[in-house]
């Protein structure tokens, strides 16, 4: 059964058509890779799913609900979390606080319970810290909880973004170039992490230029070029597809 279904998405910026009729499905529990050359419109597709952009036409269906054009925060609440291609952490805040941001949508203490420190507010806060530490431990950053987010290494910042996304208890996680800027060892760790996330029952959709990583972990690949899907299928199929080789992978792949 498909968890996410994109139907004929169209999005243009002025005269530039960034996404030109994209349709594909993501099955529940799977790992799907979205690949394609630079400027193909991959990030734009992500931004449409998460409600950052409203498509000119087409639908985004998540778990049989049409979520097209809904507000980003409402979509997160439904269970879609994301990371950003150009890391967007809260740089001046602590690592733990960054993850607590992810917990935000799974709690509900407001203004008054904060000012009067109601027992419910206290226990909710304690649970949020515990939950955030659980996710930090999961990605291997628990000992950094008190560091400033901006002081982490590039690779660790990417992991922190993943922890923050996981803290919102998503059913569906989308990662925009998670291995970008990582060295070989870090990428190997990331592969392990993505598998572990999937083992938790979370469906993943990821953009990635590292073909090695993508071929290893994805069950299905969708190839985008000039905003259109030129191929989709299993990694093995994609590797042999002449259109994909010409557009993206190159001859020697």
């Amino acid at each position: 059964m498909s968890l996410l279904s994109l139907q004929n998405l169209l999005k243009s910026f002025g005269g530039l058509v960034a996404v030109a009729g994209v349709s594909f499905d993501v099955d529940e529990g799977s790992i799907v890779g979205l690949i394609g050359p630079n400027g193909a419109g991959k990030t734009t597709v992500f931004n449409i799913i998460t409600g950052n952009y409203r498509p000119d036409s087409g639908d985004v269906v998540f778990d049989r609900n049409d979520i097209t054009g809904r507000a980003t925060h409402a979509i997160v609440r439904l269970g879609i979390a994301r990371t950003f291609q150009n890391i967007r952490l809260f740089q001046n805040m602590s690592v733990l606080e960054n993850v607590l941001a992810g917990c935000h949508c799974r709690a509900n203490a407001g203004l008054f319970s904060a000012m009067f420190r109601t027992p419910r507010q206290r226990s909710e806060e304690r649970r949020a810290v515990e939950h955030a530490m659980r996710e930090l431990a999961f990605v291997g950053l628990e000992h950094r909880h008190d560091n400033q987010a901006g002081s982490l290494s590039y690779g660790n910042q990417r992991l922190l973004e993943i922890a923050r996304a996981l803290a919102s208890a998503p059913r569906f996680l989308i990662l925009d170039e998670p291995a970008g800027g990582m060295n070989e060892q870090e990428t190997a760790d990331l592969t392990e992490l993505i598998r572990a996330i999937n083992d938790r029952g979370i469906t993943l959709l990821l953009i990635e230029h590292d073909m090695n990583l993508v071929m290893q972990i994805c069950r299905k690949l969708v190839v985008l070029e000039y905003g259109a899907v030129i191929a989709q299928g299993t990694p093995a199929d994609i590797k042999r597809n002449p259109k994909v080789i010409e557009a993206y992978l190159g001859i020697d792949c």
Partner: peptide, 18 residues
């Protein structure tokens, strides 16, 4: 936040990172 008390309590997904 008094988060220190949770150190080492939760499992880690990445062997090398742990």
């Amino acid at each position: 936040y008094g988060a220190r008390r949770y150190l080492g309590k939760f499992p880690c997904a990445v062997r090398r990172q742990c």
